[in-house]
Amino acid sequence: MSARAKAVVRPADFGRRVVNRFGLPNLGIGVGLRTVHYADILEHEPVVDWFEIISENYMQTQGRPLLYLDRIAERYPIVMHGVSLSIGSSDPLDLGYVRELAALRDRVGARWVSDHLCWTGVGGKNSHDLLPMPYTEEALRHVVARVRTIQDILEAPIALENPSTYLEFEGATLTEWDFLSHLAEEANCALLLDVNNVFVSAHNHGFDASRYLAALPYDRVVQIHVAGHSHRGGQIIDTHIGPVIDEVWELFSDAHRRAQGLSVLLEWDAELPALDVVHQEALRALDFMDVASQRLGRVGTVVRR
């Protein structure tokens, strides 16, 4: 690793809260918007701080999904979370896709756009999976350049999420947390910290999750994800099946007390229950925020509708 790259790694500063440098708002505690909850949301307008959409569910469509989204976006703040940016792919960037992202953001007034530090395909084919990056200098330079291009088109910072991974590459020269920190600094992008993914990858690869959390630049973290997972053989799989286990909530608590103004989002996709059950699980975050606040004597802002 170069000296320049080393210099951007921030030491852990456990007791100090930082505000995200992009001025992006703390939206409070939200849940992922899922099709089966549309009717409940429109009929009952439950008090949920915000919804995160899967961007692609509302792209390449001019039909019913957009009718629902337009109505929901009139009532709730929306954040866009994509799965097809393929920021790490060696294929050329799909600039048409990025422009379509920007158009959807403008249509629904999404507060920001996020995707994953991963690649989804190569050679013109798409796996629609979040495939792992080799954490190397070559990959870092590649992703930094692409993030800059995307942010130029979006005219806004994009937030990149740490993925769950099930393999590491021989010859990697950086840890994931170092890669993310360098990337965020050099591309001037935001981060979406998924503490369940940290938990999953820490188990699968045998690293210390708290060391990961201590190394991140929290002034760039604008959002945090929590979710459930499943065990398969010796590995843990990020299945987004709820509820969230206490160990992941403890990681959430750790991350939340390092930062300020983090918007919180529960992802629940497998065996999805009613919206109020999902929302109640998301609101458990308040308990773990309170623990952090008691330790630091300061309460983070939670925006309520």
């Binding site: 629609h128 010796g234 799989i237």
Partner: peptide, 28 residues
């Protein structure tokens, strides 16, 4: 496989790539 994927005690390299293989077809 061993040239590409790291080995550790949790799972073999083949089990690791197998997760992505299984995920690909099950998602589609």
């Amino acid at each position: 496989l061993e040239e590409i994927v790291k080995t550790n005690a949790i799972a073999s390299p083949l089990e690791r790539v197998g997760i992505y293989h299984q995920s690909y077809f099950s998602r589609l």
